[in-house]
């Protein structure tokens, strides 16, 4: 199969709907097993960090949430670029599906980070470089969601969000670097961070499990949302009617 027929196939919502239906269990089952298993493992079976005590167990939720939130933004920007360059409608649907999931995960990363901070270094919030960067990522997501809702025309909303997502993705390295720089200028001497550098390999394994599980979860949610979007946009076609009356899969 040549590249272009392959590409064409990927652009077909109908093909993607059927393909994603087959793919979904392969994401859903690992997501549930790895997340719940990894949480239980990290909560009950791993020895505590000898500096931070038991509060470090939040890491198994916090780190996957922030890593996948960042990855989701890149996925969104890539889908937006594909939509703008090749006019692939499916990419627009994927982009729209990622945004709420990414925003929710960023929120979760901020909240767990704050709750982790209280017992570990005595305060819920520090204007530390990494926390500030995640906060800015959250703002970028909110901007995308706000722009999406402001348009009545679906097509225009998708394109506008694609432009904004790409601009954001180009800016993220600059923003992160400038925040690092800003923090190194103002670093307060009183707060010493006890970070992941002390992590032991027995603590790392559940982290890898939940990290993988979270990526699977993102994929699962994106597929669910994209399938919904496909059904909605193609609601007047024959095949969607067949799918819903049980004639097709």
């Amino acid at each position: 199969m040549s590249f272009w027929t392959y590409f064409h196939k990927w652009g077909s919502p109908r093909w993607f709907y059927q393909f994603s239906g087959r793919l979904m269990p392969w994401l859903a089952i690992p997501a549930v097993v790895l997340l719940l298993g990894g949480f239980a493992w990290g909560l009950a079976f791993v020895p505590p960090d000898f500096k931070q005590g038991n509060s470090f167990r939040i890491i198994y939720l916090h780190v996957p949430a922030s890593a996948v939130a960042m990855g989701a933004y890149m996925l969104m920007a890539t889908a937006g670029a594909i939509h703008l360059i090749w006019r692939m409608k499916l990419a627009a649907m994927v982009m729209k599906s990622v945004a709420p999931v990414g925003a929710a995960l960023t929120f979760l990363a901020l909240l767990t980070g704050a709750v982790w901070g209280k017992p570990t270094w005595g305060t819920y919030w520090v204007w530390d470089a990494r926390i500030t960067s995640v906060l800015i990522l959250f703002f970028l997501y909110l901007g995308i969601l706000a722009l999406q809702q402001a348009f009545e025309n679906q097509e225009a909303a998708a394109k506008a969000c694609a432009v904004l997502a790409i601009v954001g993705a180009v800016n993220i390295p600059i923003i992160y670097w400038s925040v690092e720089w800003w923090y190194s200028l103002h670093q307060p001497a009183s707060i010493k961070f006890v970070g992941e550098s002390t992590i032991h390999s027995s603590m790392l394994r559940p982290l890898i499990a939940t990290l993988t599980g979270m990526y699977c979860f993102l994929g699962w949610m994106v597929l669910l949302n994209t399938r919904n979007e496909i059904l909605y946009r193609e609601r007047n076609t024959r095949w969607v009617k067949d799918v819903l009356t049980g004639a097709g899969s």
Partner: peptide, 17 residues
């Protein structure tokens, strides 16, 4: 108001420097 939501995060490096 929408404009400010979109643009403010992108302004951050300029403000910092």
């Amino acid at each position: 108001l929408l404009l400010s939501l979109i643009v403010l995060p992108l302004y951050i490096p300029v403000l910092i420097f």
